Amino acid sequence: MAEPFLPGPVLLLGAPGVGKGTQAQLLMADYGIPQISTGDILRDNIARGTDLGKAAKGLMDQGQLVSDEMVNEMVGARLAQPDVKRGYILDGYPRTIGQAEWLDAHLVSLEQSAGAVVLPLVAVNIRVDEQVLLRRITGRRICSQCKHIYNVYFKAPKREGICDIDGAPLQHRSDDTEAAFTERMKAYHALTAPVIEHYSKQGRFREVDGDRSVEAVTAAIELSLRQLRQVGL
């Protein structure tokens, strides 16, 4: 009987609105692996009052960014937990070249200390045309009561501004504007382009078309993961 496919560490990339969160949840269910979010790790360290959490909270309270070194150390501690052995989905990390290089070296050190194969990180980018993303985000409306999500362009309610389910008014989030989207895209390109180049140069990168059904995108991501792992990376 063939061994089940293990995806190892996976980084899902994609601009705001491409559906990374949805795809991460599906991959977690399919493979039985956790999603590792730097935001969650940061909040956990702060809540537990760890030395790193206290230091990070001090910086954040002053409006400063948490350094790569601190984030790396928190991620390293999280990757020492047993639930990551089958693989994991990284969310929001690595966000910079420095973080990517640290993670590569950390995974190598884990392999050397464990005396067993530790798969390198592979990255899959979900690509959607920016005009489609703009409509996805600016057209989003959320029910004020049941939180069901609509889109005035792709999935409009039967009555404008009213939830089909409970008749409550729909809300338009203040950050779901074209101006906010433009700024988020600028930040995304500035941060993500070097990370994509880093993994692409090493042959550990694939891109999938995200302007399809959720199921089709999931299938494309899983095929990409199998291709990346089959070539011995």
Rank of each mutant, 00 (worst) to 15 (best):
G21T: 11
Y31T: 12
V132I: 13
K155A: 12
P169H: 11
V75G: 09
K54T: 14
A80F: 12
G17V: 08
L225T: 01
C146V: 01
E207L: 04
V152G: 00
Y88L: 12
V195M: 05
Y88P: 01
A168V: 02
Q171P: 09
Q171F: 15
V71K: 07
S109N: 14
E101W: 09
G49F: 03
S67R: 12
P194E: 04
A187S: 05
T182F: 01
C143W: 03
I126E: 03
G53I: 10
L90R: 06
G17C: 01
P94G: 00
R86A: 14
P169I: 07
Q202H: 12
A156Y: 01
P34T: 14
Q131W: 09
V10N: 04
V124F: 09
V118F: 04
L42S: 08
S174L: 11
A29K: 15
V108S: 15
K54G: 14
I162S: 09
A114C: 15
R229F: 05
L225S: 03
E101C: 13
Y153Q: 04
E69G: 13
D104A: 13
T218S: 04
G232A: 11
A55W: 05
I46G: 08
L26P: 07
L134I: 07
A77I: 12
V18H: 02
A114I: 09
T138F: 03
D129V: 08
L107P: 03
V75K: 01
P7T: 12
Q112V: 05
V132Y: 06
P82F: 14
R95I: 03
A179N: 00
L110Y: 01
A29T: 13
R141P: 08
D91A: 15
I162M: 09
T177W: 11
R204G: 08
A2G: 10
L110K: 13
C163D: 01
G32E: 12
G49I: 11
V132K: 06
Y199C: 10
A123C: 14
S174W: 11
Q131S: 11
K54S: 13
G161V: 07
K201V: 06
K155I: 02
G14Y: 04
A179E: 10
G87E: 08
Q202N: 04
K201Y: 03
G161E: 05
L13S: 02
I221N: 00
A216E: 11
N72W: 04
G203Q: 00
E197S: 09
S67D: 15
A123N: 01
R140L: 02
K54I: 10
D68L: 14
G203P: 06
G53A: 08
A187Y: 00
L110F: 10
S113F: 10
C143A: 09
Y188A: 07
L13Y: 08
D83L: 14
I196S: 07
A123S: 11
L52G: 14
A216M: 07
R95P: 08
K20H: 12
G115Q: 12
A216V: 00
Y188K: 13
L11N: 02
G49W: 10
E215A: 15
R135W: 06
A219M: 09
P157E: 09
V122G: 04
G210R: 00
L133F: 04
T22V: 15
G210P: 08
H148L: 10
